[in-house]
Design a protein around this nucleic acid. Structure first.
Length: 615
DNA sequence: AGGGGATGTCATGTA
DNA sequence: AATACATGACATCCC
C-alpha cells in the first residue's frame, strides 16, 4: 500500500520546535496595551509612540487607523458576526447533530466541543463582554474632557499626561504642573479670578490697590535677599501679600513659577487680548512646549504626520465630544493602513468565512465520522454492504437529502472525493455498475450518485466485503474496534485493509484538524495585528489629546498672568512696564512684583536646580 | 493549458 | 510497543 514515489519526500522532519506555534498561539489574545506600570511612561515609551506614529505615516495610515471607537465597533460587529457565523453553522446542524457530535467527540477525543460549546447560549453569553457599548471605549478619546471614563482610564491617562509633560522638558517642575492641571478647565478669563478657593491671586491680591506706597508694610516683610536686590527706582518691589494666609504654595507649589512669571520682554501695558506684541510671561514653557511641540501641525511636520490628518485629528478633538467618529466611516477617508487593515480584515473575514466554513466543515467532517457511526447502526442492520457512506457525509453536512447537494453549487466541490489512489482492481469490482443498473430509475440514479461519492477506502472495503462500515472502522475506540474484529472471521487481506482504512481515516481527520488549526492561527494573528493597530491608534489619540489639553492649560496660565499684571498700578496710577517688571510667585504664597533683572536671575537659578537634581 | 484551492495520503515525529 | 495525534510534503481533483 505504501507508495513508492515518495522517495524525494523529506517527510515530516519537523522537530518539536515546529509545534509551539499552535500551542503558543492557540487562544492567544493580545494583552491590553501597556498599562504604564508604575506611574508614568518613560521617554522611550513616548519615543516608541513617535516611531509607531511615523510608521503609520510611512505605511500610509489614515485617520481611520486612529479611530479607535470606529475600529472597536467594527471589531465588535465582526466578532459578533464571527460568533454568529459559528453559531449559525452549528445551529444549522441542529440540536440532534450537536448532540451527536458531542457524543462522538467523546469517542474520538476530538477537541471541537471545547471550541464550539454545544450550548449556543453560552456563546452568546460570552459575547456581551466584548460587545460592550462603544461609549465606554469612546470615553478614552476624551480624557480630561469627559468625566465618564473609568477611574483606571483616568488614572492611566493622567499618568501618560504627566509623562508627556516630563518628556517635553518643561521649564516648570512638578509643582507647577500640579497647578496647571489642577486648574479647572473653562474660560481662562472667567477663571482668572475665580480659580478656586485656594487661588491666591484672586483672594490675596488687591490688584487695583497695589501700589508702592500701599505696600510699605509688606515691603518690610521681604526677605533680606529680596531687599538687598538693586532697585531701578525708588520702589522696585511690590509685594502682593495675601490678606489671608491662603498660600499660593498650596496651589502653585514653590517658586518654580518664578521663571514662568518673568516675561522676557514686556512692552507696554498688558491687555487681555494676547496679541503677538504681548509679553510672553510663560517664557519657554509656552514657546517650546506649546508652540513647538504641542501644535499638531508642527507635530505633523516633525513626525511626518500628514497635516491634513493632524488637522482632522485636532478638529475631532475640538469637537469636544471625542465621539464624532462617524466621519471616519467615510469611505473616501479610507487610508491605506485602514485599507490594509480592512483588507486584512476583509481577508480576515473572507478567510474567516472560509475558515468558518472550512473549519465547520472539517469539524463536521471530523465529527461526522463519529456521528456517522451512530447512524451506521441502522445501516448495519440493513446489511454490511448496505451502508451509505456518502449519505453519512451528507448527514454531517446537515443535508439529509443528498438531492439537496445538487441544489447547492458551492457544495459541489466539497462533495467531490479523492478516489484517484484507488487500486484499479478494487475499483473495477466496486465501481462497475451491474448490468441491471442500466435501467435507471431514480433510486438507481441516486445509488450511482452515492457510488461516485464513495471514497476510495469505501469502495475498497465494499470490494473486500468488509462486514462493517468505514466509519466504525475509523471511529471506534481501540477496544471496541478489536472487539468488533473479533466478532468476524476476517482474512489477512481484510484485516490489513481495515487497519489501513482506520489509519487513513484518522489521518484524514487529523489533517483536517491540522488545517483548521492552521487557519485559526492565521486568523488569530490577523486579529492580534488588528488589536495592536487599535492599541497604537488609541495611544496616539491619547497623546494628541493630552497635548491639546496641555496647551489649553498653558494658555490659561498665560492669560491669568497678563490679567494680573495688567491690573497693577504704581502710586501714580500708571501701569507697570512689562519690560521692567515681572510678577513673581513667592514661596510663601504671595505674588511679588519685582524688577526683571532680579527675576531673570532667579529664573536662571531655578533652571539650574532641576538640572542639578537630574545629575 | 495552467494556476490555485481543497482534500486525501504518506512519512515522520511526538505524546 | 501500540496507539492516537500533529504536521510537512506531495498527489490529485476540480474550478
Amino acid at each position: 500500500m505504501t507508495r513508492l514515489d515518495r522517495s524525494s519526500h523529506s517527510g515530516g522532519g519537523h522537530a518539536k520546535g515546529s509545534r509551539p506555534l499552535n500551542s503558543l498561539l492557540a487562544g492567544h489574545r493580545v494583552a491590553q496595551p501597556p498599562s504604564a506600570p508604575g506611574s508614568r511612561a518613560s521617554i522611550q515609551d513616548i519615543d516608541l509612540i513617535d516611531i509607531l506614529w511615523r510608521q503609520d505615516i510611512d505605511l500610509g495610515a489614515g485617520r481611520e487607523v486612529f479611530d479607535y471607537s470606529h475600529r472597536q465597533k467594527e471589531q465588535d460587529v465582526e466578532k459578533e458576526l464571527r460568533d454568529g457565523g459559528e453559531q449559525d453553522t452549528w445551529a444549522g446542524e441542529g440540536a440532534e447533530a450537536l448532540a451527536r457530535n458531542l457524543l462522538v467527540d467523546g469517542e474520538t477525543g476530538e477537541s471541537f466541543p471545547a471550541q464550539f460549546p454545544a450550548d449556543i447560549s453560552s456563546i452568546t453569553e460570552a459575547v456581551p463582554g466584548e460587545s460592550e457599548p462603544p461609549d465606554l471605549q469612546n470615553n478614552l478619546l476624551s480624557p480630561l474632557l469627559t468625566g465618564t471614563e473609568s477611574p483606571f482610564d483616568l488614572e492611566q491617562q493622567w499618568q501618560d499626561l504627566m509623562s508627556i509633560m516630563e518628556m517635553q522638558a518643561m521649564e516648570v517642575n512638578t509643582s507647577a504642573s500640579e497647578i496647571l492641571y489642577n486648574t479647572p478647565s473653562g474660560d481662562p478669563l472667567s477663571t482668572n479670578y475665580s480659580l478656586a478657593p485656594n487661588t491666591p491671586i484672586n483672594q490675596n491680591v488687591s490688584l487695583h490697590q497695589a501700589s508702592l506706597g500701599g505696600c510699605g508694610q509688606d515691603f518690610l516683610l521681604f526677605s533680606p535677599e529680596v531687599e538687598s536686590l538693586p532697585v531701578a527706582s525708588s520702589s522696585t518691589l511690590l509685594p502682593l501679600v495675601p490678606s489671608n494666609s491662603t498660600s499660593l504654595n498650596s496651589t502653585f507649589g514653590s517658586t518654580n513659577l518664578t521663571g514662568l512669571f518673568f516675561p522676557p520682554q514686556l512692552n507696554g501695558t498688558a491687555n487681555d487680548t494676547a496679541g503677538p506684541e504681548l509679553p510672553d510671561p510663560l517664557g519657554g514653557l509656552l514657546d517650546e512646549a506649546m508652540l513647538d511641540e504641542i501644535s499638531l501641525m508642527d507635530l505633523a511636520i516633525e513626525e511626518g504626520f500628514n497635516p491634513v490628518q493632524a488637522s482632522q485629528l485636532e478638529e475631532e478633538f475640538d469637537s469636544d465630544s471625542g465621539l464624532s467618529l462617524d466621519s471616519s466611516h467615510s469611505p473616501s477617508s479610507l487610508s491605506s493602513s485602514e485599507g490594509s487593515s480592512s483588507s486584512s480584515s476583509s481577508s480576515s473575514s473572507s478567510s474567516s468565512a472560509s475558515s468558518s466554513a472550512s473549519s465547520s466543515f472539517s469539524e463536521e467532517g471530523a465529527v461526522g465520522y463519529s456521528s456517522d457511526s451512530e447512524t451506521l447502526d441502522l445501516e448495519e442492520a440493513e446489511g454490511a454492504v448496505g451502508y451509505q457512506p456518502e449519505y453519512s457525509k451528507f448527514c454531517r453536512m446537515s443535508y439529509q437529502d443528498p438531492a439537496q447537494l445538487s441544489c447547492l453549487p458551492y457544495l459541489e466541490h466539497v462533495g467531490h472525493n479523492h478516489t484517484y489512489n484507488m487500486a484499479p482492481s478494487a475499483l473495477d469490482s466496486a465501481d462497475l455498475p451491474p448490468p441491471s443498473a442500466l435501467k435507471k430509475g431514480s433510486k438507481e440514479k441516486q445509488a450511482d450518485f452515492l457510488d461516485k461519492q464513495m471514497s476510495r477506502d469505501e469502495h475498497r472495503a465494499r470490494a473486500m466485503k468488509i462486514p462493517f462500515t468505514n466509519d466504525k472502522i475509523i471511529n471506534l475506540p481501540v477496544e471496541e474496534f478489536n472487539e468488533l474484529l473479533s466478532k468476524y472471521q476476517l482474512s489477512e487481506a481484510q484485516l490489513s485493509l481495515i487497519r489501513d482504512i482506520r489509519r487513513r481515516g484518522k489521518n484524514k481527520m487529523a489533517a483536517q484538524n491540522c488545517r483548521k488549526r492552521k487557519l485559526d492561527t492565521i486568523l488569530n494573528l490577523e486579529r492580534d495585528v488588528e488589536d495592536l493597530q487599535r492599541d497604537k491608534a488609541r495611544l496616539l489619540r491619547e497623546k494628541v489629546e493630552f497635548l491639546r489639553s496641555l496647551r489649553q492649560m498653558k494658555q490659561k496660565v498665560q492669560s491669568l498672568y497678563q490679567e494680573v499684571f495688567g491690573r497693577l498700578r504704581d502710586e501714580n496710577g500708571r501701569p507697570y512696564s512689562p519690560s521692567q517688571y515681572a510678577l513673581q510667585y513667592a514661596g510663601d504664597g504671595s505674588v511679588l512684583l519685582i524688577p526683571r533683572t532680579m527675576a531673570d536671575q532667579q529664573a536662571r537659578r531655578q533652571e539650574r536646580k532641576p538640572k542639578d537634581r537630574r545629575k
